[in-house]
């Protein structure tokens, strides 16, 4: 089947199997390894990419379902202007340790911030990242970074 989509601003046209997952196509065919595989069941959020600006779990999305959509992975998002503030806040708060959850975390926060959908305060920050697991930081650093970003 043909997958025709925009990936990080570039038109992509691929012949994919009907059962192929978007995560595998991004990682294995397009070499975009920023999205990571972990839980495989849409719990951990480390495979997060943006489809038309909204965070989705690429481990549970068929590649063909991305047909016609505008996809952004961390590789693309990192060159967008809104990345700089997130990078600065996450770095200063040490919100990334092993880094495996980080691309998914950054894309989720970036998408919601861009839509003005993170309420200021602790609860807003928690709601923003409740679909992303981090096993290293205990989340405090991430919450501190997200709160700062939302309250700016």
């Amino acid at each position: 089947m043909i997958l025709a989509a925009t990936v990080n601003g570039q038109a992509v046209r691929l012949d994919v199997e009907p059962q192929e997952l978007l995560l595998d196509v991004l990682r294995e065919r397009l070499g975009l390894t920023g999205a990571k595989r972990s839980c495989d069941v849409q719990v951990c959020g480390t495979c997060t990419v943006l489809a038309d600006g909204q965070p989705i779990s690429s481990c549970c999305t068929l590649a063909v379902d991305a047909d016609g959509r505008e996809l952004t992975t961390i590789e693309g998002f990192a060159s967008q202007p809104e990345f700089a503030a997130i990078e600065e806040a996450f770095t200063r708060q040490v919100a990334s340790q092993c880094g495996f959850c980080t691309p998914g975390m950054v894309l989720t926060v970036g998408s919601l911030l861009g839509q003005g959908r993170i309420e200021p305060g602790e609860e807003g920050a928690r709601r923003a990242v409740e679909g992303n697991i981090c096993r290293c930081t205990g989340y405090r650093a991430i919450l501190d970074a997200v709160r700062e970003l939302a309250e700016r």
């Binding site: 990682r27 390894t33 920023g34 999205a35 990571k36 595989r37 992975t73 961390i74 590789e75 990192a78 990345f83 997130i86 990078e87 996450f90 770095t91 200063r92 040490v94 990334s96 880094g99 495996f100 980080t102 691309p103 950054v106």
Partner: peptide, 21 residues
């Protein structure tokens, strides 16, 4: 001193490579 992580940028930008990558 709480200097920032030397690997922060590559991890935030998705450039850090793990074996599976």
């Amino acid at each position: 001193r709480s200097v920032t992580r030397v690997d922060s940028a590559v991890k935030l930008r998705g450039e850090a490579r793990y074996v599976g990558d």
